[in-house]
Design a binder for these strands. Structure first.
Lengths: 188, 188
DNA sequence: GTCTATACGGCGATAGAC
DNA sequence: GTCTATCGCCGTATAGAC
């Protein structure tokens, strides 16, 4: 296992933070290098082009996504509850990277859209496995998507409105789960 | 009522279409002017700066939002069903503008975030009025937000997966509405 | 591995003709 | 009201020193 240099990681951290907090346009090579504490030349030694920098962040996103999906699979309260619970914005590495990826995806960086799509599919597979009923599974996915869309909003602000009443939200997820069972039983 | 020139509208149309289909970075003054069939100088006669162009689109968004909210208020199947039904991406003026506004919001154009927040609040007010129970109202808002987040994805592609089974989705909305009634009755 | 200096292109905006 | 021409800035990328 080749250990990538520390500078590489610091540059990716800086890039993700800038994307998240100031947007794609502000995440210039100059700004990223400055935030990481290296020169532009230093940055371009590690990542030959800006595209390579973006692709490296996409790789990191997929790694973090795999970790998250594994935690979701083995969550004590089940994948659905884990999914909704963790869709509120925190300052975890996963959430910061996810918000950054949304910016990249919107800037038409194809690998970013691919990575987000892949993670989304992993989530959907686990939820469908637990719920069985497709339209209920989709409904729960959408609730999580909705919560993540707040994480995608500009600014540092954590909005207490969205997902503020997480207990109430999880109660509705239970209602939907029960409804799925009933709908499945009805059809035999 | 002063009727704004046709060229102004054509420029806003071009700007919105470019934002939606190619992203914020591609929506340069050159590109917008070309798409609208005028020169860059012509554009800058109508909108003195790029900021003014963006703000004009935000105004248009608020106008379309007011129209949409009015339709939602008087929808025969109720505000919630209308909201979820119409949260799938179409090619209506509202949806094209909405997708464009998300791009602007992510590019940290403050008036765009403000306009989206305002429309969101209008929606929430109507849903809360119909549902009464706050956590169910929030759940339904999130389902719509989730659907809209697909509209925010890059590319022209209409994804059949999300909101493809609209009947099933509306069935779950009914389940949630019934659950809200039950929860309210329980508390007296 | 990291730096400075520089080339190059593109974007927003101004000036002024028609 | 719409055009062309041009300026100045900034972002990406290269060259080459240390």
């Amino acid at each position: 296992m080749p250990r990538p240099p520390v500078a590489r990681d610091k540059l990716l951290d800086a890039y993700a933070a800038l994307l998240r907090r100031e947007g794609e346009r502000a995440a210039t090579l100059d700004a990223v290098a400055a935030k990481a504490g290296v020169s532009k030349g230093g940055l371009l030694y590690h990542f030959g082009t800006k595209e390579a920098l973006a692709e490296a962040l996409c790789e990191r996103m997929l790694d973090l996504g795999r970790e998250d999906v594994e935690k979701m699979r083995t969550a004590p309260d089940g994948p659905c509850a884990y999914y909704v619970r963790t869709s509120v914005n925190t300052k975890s590495a996963f959430d910061v990277t996810y918000a950054a990826m949304i910016r990249l995806s919107q800037a038409y960086v194809a690998p970013a859209s691919d990575a987000l799509g892949q993670i989304h599919r992993w989530w959907m597979d686990l939820i469908l496995e637990e719920i069985q009923e497709p339209s209920v599974a989709e409904t729960i996915m959408l609730i999580g998507d909705g919560l993540y869309s707040y994480a995608a909003l500009p600014g540092e602000l954590d909005r207490p409105e969205a997902g503020g009443d997480m207990d109430g939200l999880l109660r509705q997820v239970e209602v939907l789960k029960a409804s799925a069972k009933a709908q499945l039983a009805e059809r035999g």
